[in-house]
Amino acid sequence: MLAEHRPQLIRFFTSRTGDAAEAEDVVQEIWLHVARAGGGPIAHPLAYLHRVGMNITLDRLRERRRRERREQGWTDATTATAGNQAVDEAPSPLAVAEGRERIRALGAAIDKLPPGAARVFRRHKLDGLSHAEIAAELGISRSAVEKHIAVALRHLREALE
């Protein structure tokens, strides 16, 4: 399945990542994923391969961002108490405050979305309903669901800058 689609995937992931070498790595990981997943027939193999690669690309991007953060000297002191195995290690007050502040900012930004977008976004991202389930629940088309989620994401990007 992959050999046939390989040139197309290399092209796509070169565009996605802006880096031909990175695209080679991503396609290699897609191949590993597919080889090991085995599993049943897939209705839309090309779309599936793209999606697998998109997940891999995002994972790699996130890992890279984390590494960059760490290399910038982001450190996180712990308060250790000597003793037996049952001793806690508390997160540093700064890390706790930052994490809590970020969660609060995300929640507040979602609350401030336009009403329609807010409702669809919450049902999809926070409650875990699929696009089709939301479309059925709210009596709107799937493309309207997509539009609401896109609007929500754009608003959130702006709100969280």
Partner: peptide, 24 residues
């Protein structure tokens, strides 16, 4: 990249974000 990372962050933290709502 930015929108995909933000989306992934929200999905990963969804339980904590949901938990902020009653507090709000």
């Amino acid at each position: 990249d930015a929108v995909a990372l933000l989306d992934a962050e929200i999905v990963a933290d969804r339980e904590a974000i949901r938990a902020t709502r009653p507090a709000n």
